[in-house]
């Protein structure tokens, strides 16, 4: 493994300090000679919606092993869904779709209703057993989105998501929630999520292609993508957001270069919901971490 260049780590620290965030960074070349950049990448962090990434890996593995059917219909009845900001979770009526489409919505727009449905289908015990077999900790998927939402409502003493977000974003208080705590929420280190990307990219086959393609369709490119404002650079990513937590795990594909997986997990000092400077800093952290790992794929 190429040792991380000290200057790179110092630059990562400076970017984090300037943006007012605590940052955990792990970047790794997914094919070709091994190479890694890291900043505090072995410290557990609550990952918010990033649980959906390892969940998608487990789902695809189970389908590839013939234990689950990708086209199995999933019925998401409106009264049983926890309302959320995107996808099926923001719809009004009952929805039926295939499991693989649920996986695609769960990844491309971080649909909470689909995330919960996929977790139900895979089963928490089976997910944990599989993650353990892969050498990954079960805490990667400790709970789904509905449970996360319920915990935040409880911790903030509110009865709706909008009110809960106002409490978490109040600049005049330091609101805490159990969902910031890696001991209570779905949790991972940046290095472990890098390993999830590595495994996902090492699997051939149509089901894993479906997952990779869904990541390429992620609806926003304001975080890691902001560090790579190049139309010919493909980004396949998944964000995770809750209050002060802003995360993303992504694969960066420059044409004719080895793909590089990069994970940036941040906790902002500022509580506000809209912090473009922090999103841009995540792009900057990713760019600096990926830079030394770029390598032509004919080498």
């Amino acid at each position: 493994m190429t040792p991380t260049i000290p200057d790179t780590v110092a630059t990562l620290r400076d970017i984090a300090r300037d943006a007012g965030v605590t940052a955990h960074v792990h970047a790794t070349r997914l094919t070709g000679p091994a190479g890694t950049t890291s900043l505090a990448d072995t410290e557990p962090v609550a990952v918010a919606s990033l649980y959906k990434l390892p969940l998608a890996l487990v789902w695809a593995d189970l389908v590839a092993e013939g234990r689950l059917a990708a086209d199995q219909p999933v019925r998401l009845a409106a009264p049983n869904r926890m309302p959320g900001p995107t996808g099926v979770a923001m719809l009004l009526d009952d929805v039926t779709l295939s499991t693989r489409d649920a996986v695609r919505l769960m990844l491309a727009v971080s649909d909470n209703a689909c995330g919960d449905a996929v977790l139900d289908l895979v089963g928490r015990d089976r997910a944990h057993a599989h993650l353990t077999r892969l050498g990954l900790p079960a805490t990667l998927v400790r709970q789904g989105s509905a449970e996360e939402t319920r915990a935040v409502l409880r911790d903030t003493g509110t009865d709706g998501w909008a009110a809960a977000q106002r409490v978490l974003a109040d600049p005049d208080r330091a609101a805490e929630t159990s969902q910031y705590d890696p001991a209570l929420a779905s949790a991972a280190t940046a290095a472990q999520l890098g390993q999830v990307l590595r495994l996902l990219w090492s699997r051939p086959g149509p089901t894993h292609d479906t997952v990779r393609d869904a990541l390429a369709h992620q609806a926003w490119r304001h975080r890691i993508g902001s560090g790579f404002p190049h139309d010919d650079v493909l980004l396949l990513g998944k964000t995770g957001t809750l209050g002060r937590l802003r995360h993303e795990a992504a694969v960066v594909r420059f044409p004719h270069e080895h793909p590089v997986g990069v994970v940036v997990l941040t906790r902002a000092a500022r509580p506000e919901r809209h912090l473009p400077r922090v999103d841009a800093a995540i792009g900057e952290l990713a760019r600096v971490a990926v830079g030394p790992l770029r390598l032509a794929d004919d080498e």
Binding site: G20, R173, A174
Partner: peptide, 16 residues
Amino acid sequence: RHPGVHDGLTAGEVLV
């Protein structure tokens, strides 16, 4: 001054 990063330390309520 709040907000700021103070990992590893303990902080009290926000004083406005």
